[in-house]
Design a protein around this nucleic acid. Sequence first.
DNA 1: TGTACATCAGTGAACGCGCGTTCACTGATGTAC
DNA 2: TGTACATCAGTGAACGCGCGTTCACTGATGTAC
Lengths: 208, 208
Amino acid sequence: MPKKRGYHHGNLREALIEAALKLIEEKGPTGFTLSEAAKHAGVTPAAVYRHFEGREDLIAAAAHQGFGMFAELMEYAYEKGQPSALASFESAGRAYLAFARRHPGHYIAMFESGISINRTPELAAVANRALSVLERAAEELSQHIPADKRPPATMFSAHIRALSHGVVELFARGNSGANCPFPPEDLLETGIGVYLRGLGLIPADDDS
Amino acid sequence: MPKKRGYHHGNLREALIEAALKLIEEKGPTGFTLSEAAKHAGVTPAAVYRHFEGREDLIAAAAHQGFGMFAELMEYAYEKGQPSALASFESAGRAYLAFARRHPGHYIAMFESGISINRTPELAAVANRALSVLERAAEELSQHIPADKRPPATMFSAHIRALSHGVVELFARGNSGANCPFPPEDLLETGIGVYLRGLGLIPADDDS
DNA sequence: TGTACATCAGTGAACGCGCGTTCACTGATGTAC
DNA sequence: TGTACATCAGTGAACGCGCGTTCACTGATGTAC
């Protein structure tokens, strides 16, 4: 508790974001309502308007926070892999899924809530910061591919993003039923592995 | 017009599904309401209950129809590629994206509306029929991989599904902003290409 | 061909509900003297 | 240390709205004779 609580909540803004995340996580972006978030924070719906412009603004704030965390996680993962371009890239890919798994509410707010990434310049900036890590790693990695058969770095960063997102949506959520017998982490790991082998960045007989 | 229209609509069930699809396509699964769908079909909300149990049932019907079409498309694509396992597989992958692009309402109802694939046995059956095409193609294709380094067919069918779904969600929708400079078709095509190369199913210097 | 009747797809009024948002207000907090 | 006062985070009542769903009904359709 950073501040005391009483008639004045003390930390309502954070509490509301937390409540929103919990609701989103439990019931999907559809299940989230301003009123219910207020109730979870122990506060009248009207109080929300002291801190946010409205319902959408609250979701955007959650997404903003999520992108911030995401960016840091990605950057950390990238650094951890350095100076090896390959290790950085793989590490970033793994971090993507790890984030989605650890912070499903944030992930949904960021990518499935319907709010635009370009809603505000600040949101766009932090989102870009997060996604550009993967781009940078791809860029670096693509230096190791012979120039004549090298695909644009944006393209294969896009491939990895798509694969990661697809794994998250289809296999890392409970709703799908027992659709797939593999843990999503393995699925992504092997998928990226095959992909990098296809680019000639991993020797074909390397088993790791 | 298969039947006449008047006091009795004649084809309300279909009209409601169509209205639902249009609304879903335009405003996302959240934006869809039973009442609005009824209005689009030129009918009182109460009339919906002659044909569906309720809101969810209507969405499920749309998804059901979608899976039927999807299954046929996938099967057709598969056949078209035969007897080459590789051609069948690639064709099915392409069909996946083509379906999502051509029938966004159906796609959303099927994969993003929150209704469970196991809602009814019939829905599960048709969904399974659609998805098993890719599985079968993967199975067949995996015969061409040396047994000792062959990944389970379910796994690489899952990879392709994830990649396809990710491309659809991230890059084949308007909402993302100008996030990616490549047409989604190219993105998926090249992605699958690299992946298959990684499996050793396409020679490394094949440019196609 | 015409009449009587069963069927059933649609109406329209009504319901209770929770939503997002507004407003004048109140009472806790922090500061100046 | 104590009092007066400005600030402002929260209240709670109210609003209009569209929602999903129900119900008794009505009127078009198709069939039997």
